[in-house]
Simulated scan of single mutants.
Amino acid sequence: MEEIIAKYSAYLAPVLAFAITYFSIPAIIRLSLVKKLYDQPDERKKHNARISPLGGMAIFGGMIISFVFCTAHLSNPALNSVLVGLFVLFITGVKDDLYPLVPYKKMLGQLLAVAVVVIQGDVRLVSFYGLFGVNELPYAISVALSIVFFLGIINSFNFIDGINGLSAGIGVVISVTYAVVFDYLHNDLFLILALCIVGSQLAFLRFNLVNAKIFMGDSGSMILGFLVALLSISFLQINELSEQFLLKKIDALVFAFAVMIIPVVDTIRVVFIRLFILRRSPFAADRNHIHHALLDIGLSHVQASLSLMAINVSFVVLAYFLNDYLRATYLFISLSLLALLLSQLPFIIKRQQKRLGIYKPST
């Protein structure tokens, strides 16, 4: 039996993750209705229905159970640290979903989870591989940058979780990409992890993308961001050591950036606006995100989410195929400028609609 599971674990993992998440969500929705655990509308969220914010519980359960079950035959020195970090983030997220935490308390939970993985698990950005002339990083700088990277990606998914299907949809795009990558690199552990994420997110999308009945909440978005950061750093580490590497080291770093382009660029521009233009907290609620602008110019939640997913896929394909034609530094700069330009288009269209008198703000 164990040999069969080991052989077909990569096929079993996403199916099991999907099934556990799919069949858990209705029970969580009923529990939320009975206990009156509803997501409260704010400046970001304008819904009126009584919607549970506890989808992260089903996502976490589906992903973690399927991953542990399907990787029993595999080992990794960082695995225990990763599991500890996931549980810390999950507890922090559920607490925030039920009784909202002030930003610094939530950040402390994130910092603890990340520190365990970076310091104890040694999951770190060890080099810039020559990007901008930077190669090996001193240990202290490596640890500091890795913690900042993890925190940034965690909060970027927390930030984009503002419309139906977007965080989960982008999570599917990124996880499918890394599943293909790790399959090519013959790394079964992270292949299975990526597929478990795909399975749990697809099940969640069934209840969230159209006529949302549940939200993933902070417990779901923070875990998803954490896992995306983990997959990205692990890809760089594994690709560097592999005899059959997918991309040259420096190109792999740019590729990883392209894979996460939507949450990264949206977070950078929103934080810049809040800090330097509005002069307020980077965690203050507003509607300056790209997805909010897409709603404001007339797109539905489904259309906005699918559009951003398609753009994310386009950047992944672009980064991979331009790899042979542009030096990595130029490719990085080109992708960054293109992403920033595209991120402004909905806001330009919005201003044009206002000028023509045809602007109808979303509700």
Rank of each mutant, 00 (worst) to 15 (best):
E3I: 08
I5P: 04
A6G: 13
Y8P: 07
A10R: 11
A17T: 06
A19Y: 00
P26R: 06
P26T: 08
I28E: 07
I29M: 07
I29E: 05
L31Q: 05
L33D: 15
Y38N: 02
D39P: 07
R44M: 03
H47R: 05
P53K: 10
G55C: 01
G56Q: 11
G62D: 03
M63G: 13
F67L: 09
F67M: 01
T71V: 13
T71L: 11
H73P: 01
P77K: 11
A78I: 05
N80P: 01
S81P: 11
K106M: 03
Q110A: 10
L112P: 09
I119M: 07
V123K: 09
A140I: 14
F149E: 00
D161K: 09
G165L: 08
L166V: 06
L166T: 05
S167T: 04
A168M: 00
A168F: 02
G169P: 07
V172Y: 12
Y178K: 07
V181A: 12
C196T: 10
S200R: 11
A203E: 03
A203K: 05
F204C: 11
L205T: 04
V210P: 02
D218S: 08
I223R: 01
F226R: 10
S234M: 13
F235C: 02
N239A: 03
F245E: 10
I250R: 14
A256G: 10
A258W: 12
V259H: 06
P263V: 01
V270C: 08
F283R: 12
A284H: 13
R287Q: 15
N288K: 12
H289N: 12
L294M: 15
V302S: 08
V302R: 14
L331N: 00
S334N: 02
S336M: 07
L337E: 03
L342C: 02
S343G: 11
I349Y: 10
G357E: 05
